[in-house]
């Protein structure tokens, strides 16, 4: 079974979206990057992000990640912000009672996108 299926697939993503998005919006280290965009549209993007981080089906290339976050890099996005997002992701999964071993795999997937997201 794939990681995505082990976590619970689309249902798990849906359960995680609200929890994760609420954490991010309350996190003073990173919430400035998430303002401005309409909440519904932002929630759709969170869903895309979580599906990808859970190893689920997605069409994003490294270049897409680079392009999709370039405007944030211009606003000062750096490793500390990246770490904060991964931390919120882990805390979200813990709240949903996902086992630590699976959370570590999710963090590892996120890690593979670091250079693209940060435009390095």
């Amino acid at each position: 079974m794939s990681l995505y299926e082990q976590i619970g697939g689309d249902a798990a993503v849906n359960a995680a979206v609200d929890i994760f998005y609420r954490k991010v919006l309350k996190d003073a280290r990173i919430n400035r990057f998430f303002g401005g965009v309409d909440m519904d549209r932002q929630a759709a993007k969170q869903k895309a992000f979580l599906t990808m981080a859970f190893g689920g089906p997605n069409n994003y290339s490294g270049l897409d990640m680079r392009r999709g976050h370039a405007h944030l890099v211009a606003q000062g996005l750096d490793d500390s912000h990246f770490d904060a997002v991964v931390e919120n992701l882990g805390a979200t999964l813990k709240e949903l009672h996902v086992p630590d071993a699976l959370i570590a795999q999710v963090a590892a997937i996120a890690e593979t996108t670091r250079n693209d997201v940060l435009g390095k």
Binding site: V17, D18, Y21, R22, L25, K26, D38, M39, D40, A43
Partner: peptide, 15 residues
């Protein structure tokens, strides 16, 4: 409406 959506969501309402 947009502020309210955000604040009430942060206060716990499911999206």
């Amino acid at each position: 409406v947009s502020q309210g959506k955000l604040q009430i969501f942060l206060a716990g309402a499911a999206s």
